[in-house]
Design a protein around this nucleic acid. Structure first.
Lengths: 188, 188
DNA sequence: CTAGTGATGTCAGTGACTGTCATCGACCCT
DNA sequence: AGGGTCGATGACAGTCACTGACATCACTAG
């Protein structure tokens, strides 16, 4: 039998989301999160760089998934079509997680510091996508612009999916966003 | 003669940029900034909400300028063309300020917290542009997507302008970015 | 002349985050 | 079995961003 309860990291993330929902991000102290997880404040900071990061541990996997799908698109695919592959892949990854995504998103949008952190995760995603497109032979500034566009479509498709009352899949919302995006860029 | 030196706010902003350049953002304390400006730490926080904000006091004016230009575009202009008006307007506003913009941008890109703050200013700009487009009759999700696109073009055009060795005007870099953006969205 | 105003100073907090050292089960080697 | 190392955690002191409360005092309106 091990010395400590397992999955300290996960317990911290769970406790943090609970507390942020119950009393808000600012009204929650790290000491309280740690206590609920049965740990100390110092241990919290060994697992997460700061009080915000605890909500974003999944960002790395999402980025990897997106990038892999774009990198795996046919060589002949135009940048925007390669990005569409990535958008499909991440959309699938959210299937069945709408309730969780909504709860987390509500917490984030309620606080400016958390919104900032979310934006820098999206910026990191954009940078990774741009790099992937460059590796596919896309030159600047097209790679950077296409990557920003892909992220914008993801963000807005995601938000519309969360706002939707029905049972529409995220992939559908994202595809709609992409289609509208193309029309707007074409001057419609 | 007045009781205090005038322009406390401006002195704080100047002192902050100097110190952030000299020894980096993290290695600078608010007390040091205040001291260089001939004020106290408490007064710093009366003028700026936090240590980051002191670099972003111009963001409000930029947003207003952008929004006004978009709102003032001919009613018949498509969203992307209305945004192009705004891009031209803000580009003009940077004329002759490349050295300052470069120094400030170098400080910001060197620090994650400052990058976060910059991103949220751009997100605020995007939200304001989306609202402006909605007032022009553009529906969602087109308004949000077009606004994100406009901000992406601004960001990349701006960065390319800063990186450029020659004397190319910002408006030119931004127009090039917009043109490449249209091509990418069209699947080129 | 007097009361009020507004920008600043002073001071005592709270809480996020860090560096450092101690603890002690688990695991490995002999 | 015994001893040594390792890794996750705890304990504790410290720095600094940021806040609330109250004092100060040149300037100004009446």
């Amino acid at each position: 039998m091990s010395r400590w309860e397992p999955n300290a990291r996960g317990r911290l993330a769970e406790a943090a989301l609970e507390l942020y929902r119950e009393r808000g991000y600012e009204q929650t102290t790290v000491a309280e999160i740690a206590k609920r997880a049965g740990l100390t404040e110092r241990t919290f900071f060994r697992h997460y760089a700061d009080k915000r990061e605890v909500l974003f541990s999944g960002a790395g996997e999402l980025q990897e998934l997106f990038v892999r799908a774009v990198a795996g698109a046919p060589e002949s695919a135009a940048p925007i079509d390669a990005l569409a592959r990535g958008l499909d892949a991440v959309s699938e990854a959210f299937a069945g997680r709408r309730a969780f995504a909504r709860a987390r998103h509500a917490v984030i949008t309620a606080n400016a510091e958390l919104r900032e952190r979310e934006l820098i995760k999206l910026a990191s995603l954009s940078a990774a996508l741009a790099e992937t497109l460059r590796r596919r032979g896309v030159t600047e500034p097209a790679a950077g612009l296409a990557a920003e566009a892909g992220v914008a479509v993801f963000k807005i498709g995601f938000e519309r999916w969360l706002a939707d009352d029905g049972e529409r899949e995220m992939a559908e919302s994202v595809r709609e966003a992409l289609s509208v995006f193309r029309a707007v860029a074409a001057g419609k």
